[in-house]
Design a protein around this nucleic acid. Sequence first.
DNA 1: TGCGGTCTAGTTACATTGCAACTAGTTTCT
DNA 2: AGAAACTAGTTGCAATGTAACTAGACCGCA
Lengths: 192, 192
Amino acid sequence: MTFRRSTLALAILGLLENGPLHPYGIQRLIKQWGKDQVVNVGQRTSLYRMIVRLEEAGLITAGATEQDERYPERTVYHLTDEGREVCLEWLAEILTTPRNEFPEFPAGLSFVMLLPPETAGELLGQRRERLTKRIAELQLELRTEVDGQPIPRFALLETEYQVAVAVAEAKWIDAVLHDLRTGTLTWTPGPA
Amino acid sequence: MTFRRSTLALAILGLLENGPLHPYGIQRLIKQWGKDQVVNVGQRTSLYRMIVRLEEAGLITAGATEQDERYPERTVYHLTDEGREVCLEWLAEILTTPRNEFPEFPAGLSFVMLLPPETAGELLGQRRERLTKRIAELQLELRTEVDGQPIPRFALLETEYQVAVAVAEAKWIDAVLHDLRTGTLTWTPGPA
DNA sequence: TGCGGTCTAGTTACATTGCAACTAGTTTCT
DNA sequence: AGAAACTAGTTGCAATGTAACTAGACCGCA
């Protein structure tokens, strides 16, 4: 019964290395640290369900239920030794092995020829604009300070990476837009 | 009842622009055109289910069932006008709007600080090697010929894009590896 | 001619994820 | 006082992913 790995499970285990925490606290922490950019915790449904499954699998255990007057009781979870192990294993696999996750943009690209080249150009132009904004946002994040101190670089690697990739995409689109304008790249629309 | 978009659904509609086809034929075509790099058709389960749902939604219709002596009967599907419309709408949204799909590598990166910096370096070094191979494979694909003719560029945009992104990732990793070696980037392992 | 391997063409079952909506109390702002 | 936003979940269904199983056809070769 090897537990199937996922970014959500990794994030939960990873955060619990930091100390025991209750579900809502995990979600808040992910958001506070900006990790919600790389881990999907939008709907808490998945989070709660994942926590249950992790407990069943023995990777985390429920500790005392904290009782604050004004909040409903909150069960605090701890990382088990096995959980710690699994977390590091996953980390190693994820870092070493590039894996195709079928994002939608390349899939869309592979059907551009259904559109007239001018339309394709307009659409990609819009994407280019949005990418510019996104890059600016990410770069802002790289420069944010907490208590007057910049965040240490090792805690921002994923953002750095996202910038690198987004910039590469933007450059590639620029090249394509150029070739569309000059007519170097063109096609007759419709089924190949 | 707007049909939820997905790369698989897009691929099916997109391929049917080309002419009516039976399920297995769709899968084969996706593989032949190398689109299986960007559209997940590994298990046919999803494909068959998607076809059923697309038909229920009226985006495709079952035509005659082709009867070849030696094969089981194969129902041929056609694109409907609505299907054609939806396909183009999706294409426009996909091309214009960058969307976060939470790949696992950045998620992993955001927990590197749990590992000792040297280990992180080794793991990323392995990734770098595999990326090199992957890039070579993709570039080979860009240069393949069919009947002595190179494939037209507009049919290879998604591969071009994948190369651009993979190269950017490789360069970023190189920079990180450099900074790890020089000690510019470091941290003390364990929970932050 | 029989054997293994591969291709064609699916189905069944179960695990996991994602999305939407609903409950219900609390704090904060205006 | 009322509206918005936060805390802290639950329920239910739709969609996707993963594994494994069936079953006939074809292909090379020993």
